[in-house]
Design a protein around this nucleic acid. Structure first.
Length: 315
DNA sequence: AATGGGATCAACCGCAGCAAT
DNA sequence: GATTGCTGCGGTTGATCCCAT
């Protein structure tokens, strides 16, 4: 059988996007909201395939994306989440709402993997496998179901890992330490010239995200929620970056807010309602377990003590 | 100044999942 | 239940940048 290509390959433009194309895409999304990507090339006149449009939006033009260097906090969070989730970049990205899965994937492949490679012992072979091994998962157990099952068993281990990742800098630090002004650099670094132009385009969205279109935008709203407004600030260049999005703070706050029960279908999920894993492999979307001290102790505790108990050992 | 090699990252490709029919 | 079409995800590629020589 075989599926037809997502678009007519003939006449479809490839390669880097131009500011003009970005503008066309952004204008369209401003009006109609993201989604129905199939219709985007036709309606905008863009000579791009729908996938390309979606990718460009989600990875670059979408408000709320922060570019530039990863902070230590982010880095450690990624390492821990990667160890827990494997290369599920989208799931990992949902915990770093201002980062795209593509960015995280790139960062992992270009920085973290090498970094971890340098560490003898428990890492080095292949993406996450080693990390999972370090968590006590053998290759035999590596089949999705098994290691997820195992993961559920070791829920407290993950919880602790993430908590430590989030509080590593100052073990006794308050949640304020996780506020963006602390966990993000004051200034976006390494924005390319073209990135700057897209920032300008993103700026165009600023007014819109404050009052997103109501129709056709349900998915968009659930995906961005509060992140949108602040995020659009975040893509501004340096001078305003100290505002650096409350979104992450909110999300971390809600991540850590043990008092408020995590919800299903709530707008205020820890990551802005974003992460509802399509596969729902285990109850990661109910993140309270990550921090809930009351979860029983188990063999994972030992493993964690040996391997991830001290995240600083990673480096 | 030229150039070669490594690093980085935007974008593409193919597959899987899911919903609609 | 089977088929079809759309969307999302992860792996990979290739263009560009950066730095050392």
């Amino acid at each position: 059988m075989g599926r037809p290509p997502c678009c007519d390959k003939i006449g479809v433009k490839k390669g880097p996007w131009t500011p003009e194309e970005d503008l066309m895409l952004v204008s369209y999304i401003q009006e109609h909201g993201p989604g129905n990507w199939r219709a985007v090339p036709t309606n905008t006149g863009l000579m791009r395939c729908s996938k390309s449009c979606r990718l460009r939006w989600t990875n670059y033009l979408r408000p709320g994306i922060r570019r530039g260097n990863f902070t230590d906090q982010e880095e450690k969070l990624i390492i821990h989440l990667q160890a827990l989730l494997g290369n599920r970049w989208a799931a990992i990205a949902s915990y770093l709402p201002e980062r795209t899965d593509n960015d995280i994937k790139n960062y992992w492949n270009t920085h973290l993997k090498k970094k971890l490679m340098k560490k003898p012992h428990n890492r080095g072979d292949d993406d996450g496998d080693s990390a999972r091994k370090s968590l006590g998962f053998s290759r035999e157990q590596n089949s999705k179901g098994q290691w997820e099952k195992r993961l559920q068993t070791d829920i407290h281990m993950a919880r602790r890992a993430l908590r430590e990742a989030l509080s590593l800098e100052k073990p006794n630090s308050s949640l304020n330490e996780l506020k963006p002004q602390n966990c993000f650099p004051k200034k976006p670094i390494c924005a390319t010239s073209y990135a700057s132009s897209t920032e300008n385009i993103a700026r165009l969205l600023e007014g819109w995200v404050r009052n997103p279109p109501k129709k056709d935008a349900v998915r968009f709203e659930s995906g961005l929620s509060q992140n949108s407004v602040i995020g659009s600030k975040a893509v501004r260049s340096g001078s305003e970056s100290s505002e650096c999005s409350d979104s992450v703070a909110n999300r971390f706050d809600s991540l850590l807010d043990l008092g408020s029960p995590m919800r299903e279908g709530s707008d205020s999920s820890p990551v802005g309602g974003e992460y509802k894993p399509p596969h729902a492999p285990f109850s990661l979307f109910d993140e309270t377990w990550l921090f809930d001290e009351s979860v029983g102790q188990g063999v994972g505790e030992i493993i964690m003590d040996m391997n991830l108990g001290d995240p600083s050992n990673l480096f």
